[in-house]
Amino acid sequence: MRLICLILMFMASIIFAEKNHDSHEHHGHAVHQNDVYVDGKKFKLDKERFDEFKKNLRDVQVAIINVQGMVCDFCARGIEKAFLKDTKVKKIDVDLENGKVVIAYSLNKKIEFKEIREKILMNGQNATDYKLMKI
């Protein structure tokens, strides 16, 4: 019985792993793991994910925030919920692989890193720096 359970567990894991791997290959995940340039400065980000994020966004300011300690979806979900309470946040995404949170704010929002850092700290992570760009 133990052996059967072990085999089932590992088979299930391999199936899910393969499925995920295929999905990433289909989207060219490895190829799109690029640096994004903000004001001429490199910022490591999943370019494919960032391009998807920017799609249909107009007249917004986008903050790309470097966050430490964001190792799982629960951390990301907390950050997402905290920022979405702000009515001037139009869209938010989390790039777990590169430890980045990407937030689109309306243009009339005065963005201050102190506020961002405190919101992320309230969730239990640390924001170390950020870049701002306009779309």
Partner: peptide, 14 residues
């Protein structure tokens, strides 16, 4: 983790 999923993916741990 046998693979690293993105945010929102199914994550698996052995």
């Amino acid at each position: 983790a046998p693979y690293l999923g993105k945010y929102g993916d199914l994550h698996t741990w052995l």
